[in-house]
Amino acid sequence: TEKQERAIEYIRRLGYSEEEARRILKKANGNPDLAKEIARRIG
């Protein structure tokens, strides 16, 4: 989804690889607090 793409872009800007960014997002899917934090940061 567009939100996922924005989140991946944001995480990659922090210096993670695409693969790492996707792994972090997968974790965020099972972790509402982390997901909220990422969403808050990407606006």
Rank of each mutant, 00 (worst) to 15 (best):
T1I: 14
T1L: 14
T1Q: 12
T1P: 10
T1H: 13
T1K: 14
T1D: 13
T1A: 13
T1Y: 14
T1N: 13
E2V: 10
E2K: 12
E2I: 12
E2M: 05
E2F: 02
E2P: 10
E2Q: 11
E2T: 12
K3R: 13
K3A: 15
K3P: 11
K3H: 13
K3N: 13
K3L: 15
K3F: 09
K3C: 08
K3V: 13
Q4G: 08
Q4R: 11
Q4K: 09
Q4F: 10
Q4P: 05
Q4T: 12
Q4W: 13
Q4H: 09
Q4D: 09
E5R: 14
E5F: 08
E5Y: 08
E5W: 09
E5S: 10
E5M: 14
E5Q: 13
E5H: 10
E5P: 03
R6Y: 08
R6G: 11
R6T: 10
R6E: 15
R6A: 15
R6D: 15
R6P: 06
R6V: 08
R6M: 14
R6I: 09
R6Q: 14
R6W: 09
R6L: 14
A7L: 12
A7R: 02
A7N: 03
A7S: 06
A7Y: 06
A7G: 03
A7E: 04
A7I: 11
A7W: 07
A7K: 02
A7C: 09
A7D: 06
I8R: 03
I8C: 05
I8P: 02
I8G: 01
I8Y: 08
I8M: 07
I8W: 05
I8F: 07
E9W: 05
E9S: 06
E9A: 08
E9L: 06
E9F: 04
E9I: 06
E9H: 06
E9G: 05
E9D: 14
Y10T: 10
Y10V: 12
Y10C: 09
Y10G: 06
Y10L: 08
Y10S: 11
Y10I: 13
I11E: 00
I11T: 00
I11C: 04
I11K: 00
I11R: 00
I11H: 00
I11Y: 03
R12G: 05
R12V: 15
R12K: 15
R12W: 03
R12I: 15
R12C: 10
R12P: 01
R12A: 05
R13N: 15
R13Q: 15
R13M: 15
L14K: 03
L14M: 11
L14R: 02
L14T: 01
L14A: 02
L14H: 03
L14N: 01
L14V: 02
L14Q: 04
L14P: 00
L14W: 04
G15M: 01
G15V: 00
G15K: 01
G15P: 00
G15C: 04
G15Y: 00
G15N: 02
G15R: 01
G15A: 01
G15T: 00
G15F: 01
Y16V: 03
Y16H: 05
Y16D: 00
Y16N: 02
Y16R: 02
Y16I: 06
Y16G: 00
Y16L: 06
Y16W: 07
S17Y: 02
S17L: 03
S17G: 04
S17Q: 03
S17N: 08
S17R: 03
S17A: 04
S17K: 04
S17D: 05
E18D: 11
E18Y: 09
E18Q: 07
E18W: 07
E18K: 06
E18A: 07
E18M: 08
E18V: 07
E18N: 06
E18H: 07
E19N: 09
E19G: 08
E19K: 09
E19S: 11
E19D: 12
E19Y: 11
E19P: 07
E19L: 10
E19V: 10
E20G: 05
E20C: 11
E20A: 09
E20F: 08
E20N: 05
E20M: 08
E20R: 04
E20P: 00
E20Q: 10
E20H: 06
E20Y: 06
E20W: 06
A21N: 00
A21D: 00
A21E: 00
A21R: 00
A21L: 03
A21Q: 00
A21P: 00
A21H: 00
A21V: 05
A21F: 01
A21T: 04
A21W: 00
R22H: 10
R22A: 06
R22N: 07
R22G: 04
R22V: 08
R22L: 10
R22Q: 09
R22W: 11
R22I: 10
R22D: 05
R22E: 06
R22C: 08
R22M: 09
R23C: 07
R23N: 13
R23M: 14
R23A: 14
R23V: 11
R23G: 11
R23F: 10
R23P: 00
R23W: 14
R23E: 15
I24V: 04
I24T: 01
I24F: 08
I24H: 01
I24Q: 01
I24A: 02
I24E: 00
L25Y: 05
L25V: 06
L25E: 01
L25T: 01
K26C: 08
K26L: 12
K26N: 12
K26Q: 14
K26R: 13
K26V: 11
K26I: 12
K26Y: 09
K27G: 08
K27V: 14
K27M: 15
K27Y: 15
K27H: 13
K27E: 15
K27D: 13
K27T: 13
K27F: 14
K27C: 13
A28L: 04
A28W: 03
A28H: 03
A28Q: 02
A28R: 01
A28V: 06
A28F: 04
A28P: 01
N29K: 12
N29H: 11
N29Q: 11
N29Y: 09
N29R: 11
N29I: 05
N29A: 09
N29M: 12
G30V: 02
G30I: 02
G30E: 04
G30H: 06
G30S: 05
G30A: 04
G30T: 03
G30Y: 12
G30C: 05
N31H: 08
N31S: 07
N31M: 07
N31V: 06
N31I: 07
N31D: 15
N31Y: 05
N31F: 05
N31E: 07
N31Q: 07
N31K: 07
N31L: 06
P32V: 12
P32E: 08
P32W: 07
P32A: 13
P32N: 04
P32R: 03
P32Y: 07
P32I: 12
P32D: 05
P32T: 09
D33S: 10
D33T: 11
D33F: 07
D33Q: 11
D33N: 09
D33L: 08
D33C: 06
D33K: 12
D33H: 10
D33E: 14
D33I: 09
D33G: 09
D33Y: 08
D33V: 10
L34Q: 07
L34A: 08
L34F: 07
L34G: 04
L34T: 07
L34P: 01
L34Y: 07
L34V: 11
A35S: 03
A35D: 01
A35K: 02
A35E: 02
A35G: 03
A35V: 03
A35F: 03
K36N: 04
K36Q: 09
K36T: 08
K36F: 10
K36V: 14
K36C: 10
K36H: 04
K36M: 15
K36I: 15
K36W: 07
E37Y: 07
E37D: 10
E37Q: 13
E37G: 07
E37C: 07
E37V: 13
E37A: 14
I38N: 04
I38S: 03
I38W: 04
I38G: 02
I38Y: 05
I38H: 04
I38M: 09
I38V: 06
I38F: 04
I38R: 05
A39L: 04
A39M: 03
A39V: 05
A39I: 05
A39Q: 02
A39F: 02
A39Y: 01
A39P: 01
A39C: 03
A39H: 02
A39G: 04
A39D: 02
A39S: 04
R40G: 08
R40H: 14
R40T: 09
R40K: 11
R40I: 13
R40W: 05
R40M: 11
R40S: 10
R40D: 10
R40A: 09
R40Y: 05
R41Q: 13
R41T: 12
R41V: 10
R41W: 06
R41G: 11
R41N: 12
R41A: 12
R41Y: 06
R41L: 10
I42A: 12
I42H: 14
I42M: 15
I42N: 12
I42P: 08
I42K: 12
I42T: 11
I42L: 15
I42V: 11
G43K: 15
G43D: 12
G43I: 15
G43N: 15
G43F: 14
G43H: 15
G43R: 15
G43A: 15
